[in-house]
Design a protein around this nucleic acid. Structure first.
Lengths: 241, 241
DNA sequence: CGGGAGCTTGATGGACCTCAATCCCTGTGG
DNA sequence: CCACAGGGATTGAGGTCCATCAAGCTCCCG
């Protein structure tokens, strides 16, 4: 049964695959029993034996690992329409934690349901795998950023990537989007200190590239920002379904 | 037909799943038509439309991305038994390049064969997905290293991870393994300069932790090195097949 | 013997971190 | 209504880690 709010998963998959009404219904069915998660609460804890994945319905999350010295590295920011913890269905334990950055609504997906979907509607199963595959590619890009790009380049790169992802599900437009990430959180994603993130954001503002204020990101000069970040327009090719 | 040399893929999967003789045979069949790739040659180029993945049979490879300023970030070092470019079967174009670090023998896997395997022997398909899933987890760990660990920690971490992976396929033992990686290549993997890698390796040697000489890595003090690197013993749980 | 690729070491500089202080905004309780 | 607390943003000063530049080394191979 279709939930009464916008179904971002359907929106996201639709951006790449033509879905029949039946497909959409099947996808929506997957996401039964919405659960509310309060800001700051963990959705999945590293090492937790969970035979289920989650779909983000509303709100922002982050996946991360903690280090023994108290440091934290954020891997990705799952947004509405994204799947979380797909890997924990295969590996028995999740290899990193997820927590909610804002009040969030998620849906649990039982491993069993997922396997049924793969068997009964392989086309949709492939589409989900395909989406997961894109996410994986983003992690790689993130790795490249942290390894070989300067602080400013990688900050710009992250903001551009968030914009594109949010745009796909209709949560960003005209270079602007609502962004609940504090400088502290950004720092943990970028492998920088909070203070340095602040300085970098100031420079981006002073150069007329990007402004971040009031939980809102505005990319003022899209071409120049992409140039600075070395951000290529994504071409994932058509879905080979 | 079973190739006449050791089948590292079978060895690797066997480490986690009980394989029947039939399973092993099916796996080996997947890897027909071995191809030799000379040191330094590319196996898959980024953006190349390839409907096939590869299995490394013998030798070392690396997957990497190039930046516009000439920089390079190495993502992983595929070793015998590893799959390469599985993602390029889903996304039509590969999102990063692969090249051979030594003379290498690989086997092509047609996308079609792969899909057949998933349909006809889902158990083996799941096992391959599971192995791919472990690889993904390693990329995440690598991301954490580069983002939040010091040069020495991440260098030690990489060497430990290589040791564990090689040990699984029988190419490392007693803390030692043959390693064809130059300091330059290590630097591109670790997000460091070649020169700094040199200094870090010297420190690791002077502290009696790890020695790297003559293409050979010896982890002299395993517990202390793991302590330094914050390297946790992997527990992927049992294969839920 | 000459050349090249990789390793080694020193000196200098820059990118980024850490510590410390101030400011702003919002929410909360007296 | 105001005092206060607390999280986040901002700015400065000083220090560290690592990059860059420059040079010499070793080893292998032609």
């Amino acid at each position: 049964m279709m939930p009464d709010h916008v179904d971002y998963l359907v929106r996201k998959i639709s951006a790449f695959v033509d879905l029949s009404a039946q497909d959409m219904s099947d996808l929506s069915d997957l996401q039964s029993t919405p659960i509310e998660v309060k800001k700051g609460r963990e959705i999945v804890h590293e090492g937790q034996a969970g035979q289920s994945a989650y779909i983000i319905h509303d709100g922002w999350a982050c996946s991360f690992k903690l280090l023994s010295d108290g440091g934290r590295q954020i891997i990705t920011f799952p947004i509405p329409g994204d799947c979380v913890g797909l890997r924990s269905i295969l590996l028995r334990t999740s290899d990193h934690s997820f927590s909610a950055l804002t009040d969030t609504v998620v849906s649990r997906i039982q491993a069993v349901r997922m396997r049924e979907l793969f068997k009964d509607v392989p086309r949709l199963g492939a589409a989900i795998l395909w989406a997961a595959s894109r996410d994986e590619a983003m992690v790689v890009e993130h790795l490249v950023s942290i390894g070989r790009r300067s602080a400013m380049e990688r900050t710009a790169h992250l903001l551009l990537e968030l914009y594109d992802r949010l745009h796909i599900v209709g949560l960003a437009d005209k270079g602007a989007f609502a962004c609940p990430l504090s400088q502290n959180v950004l720092a943990d994603a970028l492998g920088l200190s909070t203070i340095h993130v602040n300085r970098v954001l100031r420079q981006l503002r002073e150069r007329g590239l990007v402004t971040v204020k009031n939980q809102t990101v505005v990319i003022e000069d899209m071409p120049a920002t992409k140039m600075l970040a070395g951000y290529l327009n994504r071409d994932d090719g058509a879905f080979p379904g």
